[in-house]
């Protein structure tokens, strides 16, 4: 028996009919068609599926889509404003904070949520902010450098 799900993804309202056991990550990828959000495990331990739910970083494989009913979701596709990349996206580019790129959407969402909540995190707080996200390529330090550069104000929000 399918159920109705209403949510906003990157500002766009959606009305969907889904099986109740569908996970939020499946709705985003398979129903909404936003494949930027990745999935690297099934037990919310890798962080590749991290999105923002009402402003908070959430692993979208860890909740049922119906639990997000009426919520606002931001995915990696929602970070850029038109053709302007967000400060974190630009910082990631400059610092080489990605390699294979599979963890990158989750890393960006965790970092974005962190800075939304705490615009001036210490290095240790940045590390904590991304500790739920595994990156097998970069060794994290380039990601930490990118976030630090944004914290220092080296990347302004594009007008």
């Amino acid at each position: 028996m399918k159920k109705e799900l209403k949510l906003k993804v990157n500002g766009q309202p959606y009305e969907l009919y889904i099986k109740p056991k569908t996970l939020l990550v499946q709705v985003l990828r398979d129903h909404v068609g936003l494949t930027g959000t990745k999935r690297g495990c099934n037990d919310s331990s890798c962080g590749a599926c991290t999105i923002m739910l009402n402003g908070m970083a959430v692993k979208s494989c860890s909740i049922l889509a119906l639990q997000a009913n009426g919520c606002e979701v931001v995915t990696v596709e929602g970070l850029a404003k038109g053709n302007k990349l967000s400060p974190l996206q630009r910082a990631f580019l400059d610092h080489g904070s990605y390699q294979c790129g599979f963890c990158t959407p989750g890393m960006l969402m965790s970092s974005t949520a962190l800075l939304a909540e705490n615009p001036k995190p210490t290095k240790e707080e940045i590390k904590e902010g991304i500790d739920g996200n595994i990156c097998r390529c970069t060794g994290y330090n380039s990601i930490i450098r990118a976030v630090t550069a944004v914290v220092k104000g080296e990347y302004k929000e594009a007008k």
Binding site: T35, G36, K38, L85, Q89, Y98, G101, F102
Partner: peptide, 17 residues
């Protein structure tokens, strides 16, 4: 920047997945 960098930071890079 890696030549595929913007695809990777915007989620538009397409994997087999």
């Amino acid at each position: 920047h890696n030549i595929d960098g913007t695809e990777k930071v915007t989620g538009s890079a397409k994997y087999t997945f």
